[in-house]
Design a binder for these strands. Sequence first.
DNA 1: AACGGGTGCAACCGCAAACGA
DNA 2: TTCGTTTGCGGTTGCACCCGT
Length: 272
Amino acid sequence: MKRKGRSCDNQDAVNRGPWSAEEDQILINYVQVHGEGNWRELSKRAGLKRLGKSCRLRWLNYLKPDIKRGNISSDEEDLIIRLHSLLGNRWSLIAGRLPGRTDHEIKNYWNTYLRKKVEQNHNYNNLPGHNNIPIKLRIESPRCSKNSLGIVIDPTKSSHPVTIKSMSCTEVMMPTRTVNDFTTSWDKNPFASTPQDGHGHCSEGFLKHFDISDVLMPYEDCRFNEYACVEVPQHFGDEAYKVINAVGETRYDNWKIDDYFPLDYDVGFSLF
DNA sequence: AACGGGTGCAACCGCAAACGA
DNA sequence: TTCGTTTGCGGTTGCACCCGT
C-alpha cells in the first residue's frame, strides 16, 4: 500500500504504508523502555524510518496495550449512535466515553457501517433535538457543590438522547454568613459578591450562561451506558449555592423548566 | 477463471491548539 | 509576546479484499 510521497524535502528516506511486524515490535520495545512522547525524536532514536506522527498514530491506535480492537458490542454501538447524535463528528469525545476504543476506530466504524445503519433507521430523524418536543427539567439536588454545577441525563428511561446546547440558571440563591457565626442563611439577592451581568446591574433573574456542548466531559463515577454527564465549572466563588430555576436550549429547539417531555424522560441537576 | 465495482480500514494529510524556550 | 515545535483531531486517500457477473 505504498502511497505517493511529496516530492519535496527528504521524505524519500521515510517508510510509508503499512507497518511491518518488525517495525511494530521496535516501537513497542522503545515505548516500554522510554515511554511515550516526543515522537519525532523517538522515531530517530528507535531507528524507525517513520515520521514521528506516524509512530504516534500507530502506537495510540493499534499497539497500546489497553486498546480493544474489533467486536464492537451492540451496547457500544448504541452508545456511539447516541453520542454521535449529541456531539456530531467529535470522535475523540465519543471515544472518551468508550473505554479502550480509539477515535480512529470509532470514526472508521461510523463511516463504514453505523452511518448507513442510522440513515436507514427512520426514527433517527425523529429524535428529540431533531424536532420540537420540549424536555422536562427536574431539579434533583438544588444545592450544588462548590466545584461544579451539572446535569445528569438518564437515557435508560428513553431510547432518545438529549441534545442540550446551553443552560441558564435564572434564579440562584447564595449563602450568607455573619461574622463569627457559622450558621448559614440563604440570600436570594446575593449579587454583591457574585458576578454581575456586564451592564453593572444585577437583576434577580440571572446568573450564568454557558454552552454545555463545550464542556461535556465524562464523570468518573458515571456508568457510561446509563448516564450522559455534563460538568460545568461554576463561577460564583467558593460558596455553595442553590439553583431555584433554570432554562435551557437543545440543539434545535428551546425548552424550559415547566415544559414536559413525553412520559418518563428526566433531566435533572445533580451534585457532582 | 477473469473482470470490475463496491467496501473496509490503515495510513496519510492539513490544520489548529497547546506547549515551551 | 513571539515563534518554532509537538500534539491532537477530523477528513481524505488508496490498496486489499470481497462479491456479483
